[in-house]
């Protein structure tokens, strides 16, 4: 009995010693293994490609001066993974805001406002509990000029004893006044790895 307990304890100790410790990863210096699924590095690459191309092409330069107002439209996830597309769009929004060329409205969205407080704050009109001079006036909201939409596609292939997973991150920036896509971009992300890897 004692021997068995000692063996089990020793076995657990060895296994614990072999396990990789939990650690923080610095995105600025991450040379870690690549996953077959989409990870943060893929979104960062797609966002970087998109923003640099938008800035270099001049598509986000407002000819009337000032900043364009952008709304995020639908980004379709046509992959086998559950992806929150905000991982992509947030990076683009932050970078465009920092560039000083584009500001994103959170008051309009396909499924309602991203920040419902814009409307809720206006419901304070007529309320006797609030100083009406501090309540938002009518006609102050800014309508969007540009709409960002897109799609993330996934295609799986067998390549010999390996599998190849192709992701395509497609984005369009539509000028709402004309309905024309004034900028479009596609970032392919191709990964090849063992057949055993799961891509969902």
């Amino acid at each position: 009995m004692l021997i068995r307990a000692v063996v089990i304890t020793a076995g657990l100790a060895v296994l614990a010693g072999c396990a990789a410790p939990t650690r923080y990863i610095d995105p600025a210096a991450d040379d870690g293994p690549v996953a077959m699924t989409m990870d943060y590095r893929d979104f960062e690459k797609a966002a970087t490609d998109a923003v640099e191309d938008m800035l270099a092409s001049g598509a986000v330069n407002n000819p009337n001066g000032g900043r364009y107002i952008m709304v995020v439209s639908r980004i379709t996830n046509d992959t086998m993974q559950r992806i929150d597309t905000d991982q992509l769009t947030k990076k683009i929004r932050v970078a465009l805001l920092r560039s000083g060329k584009v500001v994103t409205t959170t008051a309009v969205g396909l499924n309602g406002a991203e920040d419902e407080m814009t409307q809720k704050a206006r419901e304070l009109r007529e309320s006797e509990e609030f100083d009406q001079s501090t309540v938002q006036s009518k006609g102050t909201l800014q309508a969007p000029d540009l709409s960002l939409s897109g799609k993330i596609l996934q295609r799986n292939h067998k390549v010999g004893k390996e599998q190849q997973v192709e992701y395509y991150i497609q984005l369009s920036l539509t000028e709402l006044a004309s309905g024309l896509a004034i900028w479009e971009g596609e970032t392919p992300i191709i990964k090849r790895g063992p057949n055993k890897s799961v891509t969902w």
Partner: peptide, 9 residues
Amino acid sequence: VPGVGEGYR
């Protein structure tokens, strides 16, 4: 001047 990401391409 911060860019989109910090990682290497």
